[in-house]
Each structure stands twice: as C-alpha cells, then as structure tokens.
C-alpha cells in the first residue's frame, strides 16, 4: 500500500477538522432525515449502540467496521445504528469514515463538497488501481489514528440480496494486512422489507442489526493473504445473515 505523503496527511487532517467543525449540523440532520423523513427505525438500537461503545472502549487497537451492502444509504444506516448523533458529537472518531463509489456520490462539485464534509473518501470502484491504493492507504492512516472506518467487503451492493461470500474483492484484506492489530467489527443490517438490493430502503422500514467482533489472521502472504482475510470477514457476515433469517423465522 502506498505510503501517505505529508501533503496527503495534511489534506486528511484538514478534512477531519472541517468534518468535525460542521458535525453539529450534518450529523443530527442525517439522523433526522432517516428517522423523521424516511420513518426508519432500528430495533434494539440502544443495545446495538451499547455494544459498539463497549467494543470501542475495550481496546485502543484500530477498528474497521465491515458491513453487508444492500442499499445506497447503508453507510448512513450503519453509522446511525452504532451511535446516536449526540454521542458522535462527543466521540467524533467513532463515527466511521466511508468509501462511497465516486461515480455515484462524487460526480458533481456539490456532491463532492457534501461527502467531503461527511467523512467520505470517494473511491473509483473498478477503476485505476493506483487511485484505489491511494484511498486504501488513507483509510489505513486514519485507522492508525483511532478513527473508525466503514467498508463493504463485497465491493458493491449484493445483487443476490445475500452476502456474496465468493466475492473476489480483497480491499478489506489489504487494509487489514497494512494495519497491525486491526480489529474488525462485522455489522449485518437489514430492513424487514428489504427483499433484495435496491437504491433506498422502503419508507418506514424497520431494521435489525447484528454485530460480531473478529480478529482475522492468515498464514498466507501477498495477494492470497489479502484474499484470505477478506474471505474470513465475508464468512462472518454470512454467518450473521444466517442468524438474522433464523431468528426472523
């Protein structure tokens, strides 16, 4: 993974500061839109948030949040499920950074400005490998500084509507390989009315979240190591999915 230049570190530091400065505006607004305008609810949200707080407090090691991916607002939903706006304002590092698809979320100047403020590092999915590497390097740097980050190990919304364990993406494994001691918080989040993948969840949908902490290890090296680590994360997410549907009956 590319080493971050001093200039890149400075740019990230500025983005971090701007995001925190404006957080009292955009964090509550995002939550209000999800809860008020869209009518979404997360069942047992207090327990989920308490578990996230416990996991963060239990160790100072970096924490990478890895979630299943079904809609274009999953990153906001996961963040909302893990913490309240007020808690995030007091613990800004706990609000995860996101890696939205550049084409979908940063194609216009105003969209780029919004995602810049909202702790996002747009990534060119399937694009230039050097650019992808640069974004992953920035995620590694942020994780080492104690910032949380959220990635979708499947690399995109699941077209089958289920966790795609055979996904050949390895970005998660690559990050884990570069950040020693990094823990993974697997988050499985799904709305009751979410039959498959979609652009947005249904209005008024109720979500259930499941969390599992993972510390992936691999004896492999090189690219195979990254793939191995990614597969472990995907396998854990698939297991959470099984629990989700089993409990749902």
């Amino acid at each position: 993974m590319a080493e971050l230049s001093p200039r890149a570190r400075l740019a990230l530091g500025i983005q971090l500061a701007v995001g925190r400065l404006l957080a009292p505006l955009w964090v509550p607004l995002s939550a209000a839109l999800m809860r008020g305008a869209m009518g979404w609810r997360v069942e047992g949200v207090e327990q989920t948030r308490a578990e996230y707080r416990r996991i963060r407090d239990a160790s100072r090691e970096p924490l990478l949040v890895c979630a299943n991916h079904l809609t274009m607002v999953d990153s906001a939903l996961v963040a909302w499920a893990l913490g309240s706006p007020a808690w995030y304002l007091m613990h800004p590092a706990a609000l995860p950074w996101n890696l939205p698809d550049r084409e979908n979320f940063a194609s216009t100047w105003w969209a780029r400005a919004v995602v810049y403020v909202m702790k996002c590092l747009p990534i060119p999915r399937g694009g230039d490998r050097g650019e992808v590497s640069s974004v992953l390097a920035r995620v590694g740097w942020l994780l080492r500084r104690g910032e949380a980050a959220l990635v979708f190990p499947e690399g995109g919304r699941s077209r089958s509507g289920r966790v795609e364990q055979d996904s050949r993406t390895y970005g998660v494994g690559r990050i884990l390989g570069e950040v020693p001691g990094c823990r993974v918080l697997c988050v499985y989040l799904r709305g009751e009315r979410q039959a498959s993948w979609s652009r947005m969840p249904a209005r008024g949908d109720r979500f259930r979240a499941r969390l599992a902490l993972l510390e992936p290890k691999s004896v492999a090296s090189g690219l195979r190591r990254s793939l191995d680590l990614s597969r472990q994360v995907l396998a854990r997410l698939a297991a959470l999915e099984e629990e989700h549907f089993r409990d749902r009956g």
């Binding site: 090189g222 690219l223 990254s226």
Partner: peptide, 12 residues
C-alpha cells in the same frame, strides 16, 4: 511466483 497486492496496482 508470489505477487504482492501493491504490485497488482502496477498491472494495467
């Protein structure tokens, strides 16, 4: 051979 993932970035 073994190829590191950063080497993959150079393969266009």
């Amino acid at each position: 051979i073994e190829i590191a993932d950063e080497d993959v970035d150079e393969v266009n």
